[in-house]
Amino acid sequence: MVLTRRAARAARSSITRLPVELLDIIIRDLSFEQTAAMCQTSRLFNDLATPILYQSRTSGASLVPHIRHFGLPRADTLYIPKLVADITASLLPLTNLRTLDLATADEVSFITLLRTAQFPHLTRFDTAVQSETSEAVYDFLQRHHRNLQHLAILHAEPVEIRSPIHLPHLRGLYTTDLMLSHLNLEEAPLVELHIYNIDAEPARLHPVSIDPSTARRVRNVTLLCRYISVDIFDDVAKNFPLIDTLEVQAMRLLSLILFSDEIIRIGTHLERFTELSTLNLDISAANRLSNEGDATILEWHGACKTLSSVTFGRKTWLREKDKWSAVCEDV
Score class of each variant (00 low, 15 high):
Arg252Val: 08
Ile257Lys: 06
Gly172Tyr: 01
Leu23Ile: 07
Asp24Gln: 08
Met251Glu: 14
Asp199Tyr: 11
Phe110Ile: 14
Ile111Gln: 06
Ile87Gly: 11
Ser209Trp: 00
Leu72Thr: 04
Glu160Ala: 08
Thr41Tyr: 13
Ala203Asp: 01
Val248Leu: 01
Leu30Ala: 08
Asn197Gly: 05
Thr127Pro: 10
Leu100Gly: 05
Leu18Gly: 04
Asn184Asp: 06
Leu3Met: 04
Asp76Asn: 13
Lys238Ser: 04
Ala8Trp: 12
Lys305Ile: 11
Val236Ala: 00
Ser42Asn: 11
Lys238Asn: 09
Phe140Tyr: 09
Leu22Asn: 10
Ser229Phe: 02
Tyr79Leu: 14
Ala61Pro: 14
Ile67Trp: 14
Arg115Tyr: 09
Ile228Trp: 10
Thr222Trp: 03
Ser56Cys: 13
Glu186Leu: 08
Phe119Ile: 01
Arg17Pro: 09
Gln149Trp: 10
Asn184Leu: 01
Pro65Ile: 02
Leu53Thr: 05
Thr222Met: 07
Asp235Cys: 01
Glu186Asn: 12
Asp139Glu: 14
Phe45Cys: 13
Val327Ala: 03
Ile264Ala: 14
Ser181Tyr: 13
Ser290Asp: 15
Val137Ala: 11
Pro168Ala: 06
Asp76Tyr: 14
Cys304Asn: 04
Pro120His: 06
Trp317Gln: 11
Glu186Arg: 08
Ser284His: 11
Asp86Ser: 11
Pro51Asn: 06
Ile257Thr: 04
Asn96Ala: 09
Thr175Pro: 13
Thr112Glu: 15
Ala89Thr: 15
Ser13Ala: 09
Leu63Trp: 00
Glu107Met: 08
Pro120Cys: 05
Met38Cys: 15
Leu63Phe: 03
Phe273Cys: 02
Lys321Arg: 12
Pro19Phe: 05
Leu307His: 03
Ile195Trp: 00
His66Ala: 10
Val327Arg: 06
Pro212Asn: 09
Glu192Ser: 07
Pro212Gly: 10
Thr245Trp: 02
His144Gly: 00
Asp244His: 04
Leu154Thr: 05
Ser62Asp: 10
Thr16Lys: 06
Leu53Arg: 03
Ala49Pro: 01
Glu247Phe: 00
Leu63Tyr: 00
Ala103Tyr: 13
Ile80Cys: 11
Val129Asn: 02
Leu92Val: 07
Glu320Pro: 04
Pro164Ser: 05
Phe110Asp: 07
Leu258Ser: 15
Thr296Cys: 02
Asp294Trp: 05
Ala61Lys: 06
Leu72Asn: 06
Leu44Gly: 10
Asp231Val: 03
Leu63Pro: 09
